[in-house]
């Protein structure tokens, strides 16, 4: 059924049904896990749920800074809601004058990464969600952009993801500030709101050179594990908790993206016309890693690249597990 999804436009009813089926299918193993996460902090999970919903459902605009090492970028972000859909945009105020716009994003459209955070009723049923691979600690935060914040310290429970220090608006749950922490609590990236207004429309915007309009968006209908992929190629190993962001047919291309709700990485496969000397290389910018490996896959020379906000050992092991589908 999953294969047919994107080919024929489905009625809302059919889509709801398929979601329900998926929910039933995924809740079965969850029930077994009910007692496997005694250390999970329900308060933290509640905050993550709120954070995820508010980022999509609230109307706000403000100025945001992004710090990566010595580099600091400033941008304007706005998010508005009208008639059951949202539109959002990001305008870079430093460096390249660019604007990214996403319009008509349905309010009830919950993508894979956010579904992993929005445990809702499942939380009550004892599901751990992200608490299976992160440890959370909630404390009082400071004021950020004039708003009182709640601080959540997020520590990875394995070596395949980074940690975070997140500060959420105590009233709305909106993420106001977030630091990505590498080994030894090294700050790889920090973003935060410098000012923030709720509700009111955004004031006139800055000059831009490039506007990128994100047209449509992939169906988040299925959260499959790597083994379910058919055709082309597959990633046979993933760190626990990472799932595909898109339905299968959308990933027939040379890319697969995976998320655990907090981090994401994409795997790109490029077939080469002839042999390349085997080897590996990395490039970094802030928390973003690009890991490229040249290898021969079943006699076909390929280049596998992992790009994302994950440590190099994750990228290395994921690239190591890329196979042609059987």
């Amino acid at each position: 059924m999953q294969r047919l999804l994107p080919r024929f436009p489905l009625t809302a009813q059919a889509r709801r049904l398929s979601r329900w089926l998926l929910a039933v299918a995924t809740s079965l193993p969850a029930a077994a896990l009910a007692t496997s996460c005694p250390g999970a902090d329900p308060e933290a999970l509640k905050w993550l749920d709120r954070m995820s919903r508010s980022s999509h459902q609230a109307a706000y605009h403000g100025v945001v800074t992004l710090q990566r090492g010595e580099d600091m970028q400033v941008m304007q972000i706005s998010h508005s809601v009208s008639g059951g859909s949202t539109s959002e945009q990001l305008t870079k105020l430093t460096g390249q004058g660019a604007r990214i716009v996403r319009e008509d994003h349905p309010l009830d459209c919950v993508h894979t990464g956010h579904r992993l955070l929005q445990l809702g009723a499942a939380l009550g049923a004892g599901e751990c969600g992200v608490a299976e691979y992160y440890r959370f600690d909630v404390s009082e935060g400071e004021r950020i952009a004039g708003r009182q914040a709640v601080r959540i310290r997020v520590e990875p429970l394995d070596m395949y993801r980074y940690g975070y220090l997140m500060e959420l608006d105590r009233e709305t749950g909106l993420l106001l500030k977030s630091s990505t922490l590498g080994r030894g609590d090294l700050v790889l990236e920090r973003f935060q709101f410098a000012n923030l207004s709720y509700g009111s429309p955004m004031p006139s915007s800055a000059d831009v050179e490039v506007t990128h309009e994100v047209l449509g968006h992939p169906l988040p209908d299925s959260a499959m594990s790597a083994e379910d992929l058919q055709g082309g190629w597959s990633v046979d190993w993933l760190p626990r908790g990472f799932v595909l962001t898109e339905a299968e047919s959308a990933t027939a291309s040379g890319r697969r993206t995976f998320t655990d709700g907090l981090a994401a990485f994409s795997v790109f496969l490029e077939p080469l016309s002839r042999e390349i000397r085997s080897g590996e290389g990395i490039a970094r910018e802030g928390s973003t890693l690009s890991y490229t490996r040249g290898l021969s896959l079943g006699g076909q020379p390929v280049l596998v690249t992992v790009i994302g906000e994950v440590p190099v050992n994750t990228a290395r092991m994921v690239a190591d597990s890329v196979r042609w589908a059987r």
């Binding site: 993206t257 981090a263 490039a283």
Partner: peptide, 29 residues
């Protein structure tokens, strides 16, 4: 690896923007 980052960063950001908590921020990367 550096060239791949330039070529694929935006495609990754589109996915990250939909599936991680920071909203549109991944595009700033």
């Amino acid at each position: 690896a550096r060239q791949r980052m330039q070529r694929f960063a935006q495609e990754h950001a589109e996915q990250a923007a939909l599936n991680t908590p920071q909203g549109m921020l991944p595009f700033a990367r």
